[in-house]
């Protein structure tokens, strides 16, 4: 069995207090392993995005732990958590959140620059990631000049630029047509997923479930089941 990349135990998160309290995540426990693509699916409001934020060091849980490399990330200082996000987690946001005033390659270089790398060195390295995602020829264009699929690839290149162990995709196909969405997932599965990396995808697009190794289903803030995905080689 592959090594654990992350282990979440009894995570609870609520918003508001008193009568206005809404529990978004209720006692969720699961783990993610290196070399797997774990899909988290469920209807809107089921707590998928909140759970994603809890395990990636973005939103502090009210209860529970998130263990990475044997340490609860929420026991760390805020600066250390920021370092954790920078070094261990790569994000591909639903709306990509690329900087329209920077070129494509500068967007990809952002995590490297945040790691205090030299500007020119970061740009050179970012070019390599653009080559990996197949859009090196678009390096000097601003992201707004790229198609949705190309912007998704830029976001992926930016996410992998910091060599993260855990890669998180939030609704990766929400802004793409079916074919482009499948192409992106196919590309990610073949080129980005490695034995030393775990990919967690939040989606409710069942057209891409074939790429999942495991699918975790959520409803009303709880995990209601796990199933093998179409991508698991038995």
């Amino acid at each position: 069995m592959a090594e654990l990349a992350m282990q979440a135990t009894a995570l609870v998160k609520w918003f508001g207090e008193g009568d206005a309290r809404t529990v978004a995540v209720q006692g969720v426990s699961f783990d993610a392993r290196f070399g797997e693509m774990l899909f988290i699916e469920g209807p809107s409001g089921s707590g998928k995005t909140t759970l994603l934020s809890l395990i990636s060091g973005i939103l502090r849980p009210n209860e529970g732990t998130v263990m990475v490399e044997g340490r609860d990330i929420w026991s760390m200082t805020s600066d250390r958590i920021a370092d954790f996000r920078l070094n261990k987690v790569g994000f591909v946001f639903q709306d990509y959140h690329l900087f329209p005033r920077l070129t494509t390659v500068e967007n990809v270089a952002i995590p490297l620059i945040l790691k205090k790398n030299d500007w020119d060195k970061s740009i050179d390295e970012a070019m390599e990631y653009l080559e990996i995602v197949g859009i090196k020829d678009r390096a000097l264009l601003p992201p707004v000049k790229l198609s949705g699929g190309e912007q998704q690839r830029v976001a992926i290149a930016r996410a992998i630029a910091s060599h993260p162990d855990i890669l998180i995709f939030d609704e990766p196909t929400a802004s793409l047509d079916g074919e482009t969405g499948r192409k992106i997932l196919d590309f990610v599965k073949k080129n980005i997923l490695t034995d030393k990396r775990c990919i967690i995808v939040v989606t409710h697009d069942n057209r891409i479930f074939e790429y999942a190794d495991r699918i975790m289903t959520m409803e009303d803030g709880r995990v209601i089941g796990f199933e093998q995905g179409g991508g698991r080689e038995e």
Partner: peptide, 12 residues
């Protein structure tokens, strides 16, 4: 939103 994204990525 971009500043938020930077924060999410790991900017302090």
């Amino acid at each position: 939103e971009r500043f938020g994204a930077l924060k999410a990525i790991g900017a302090k």
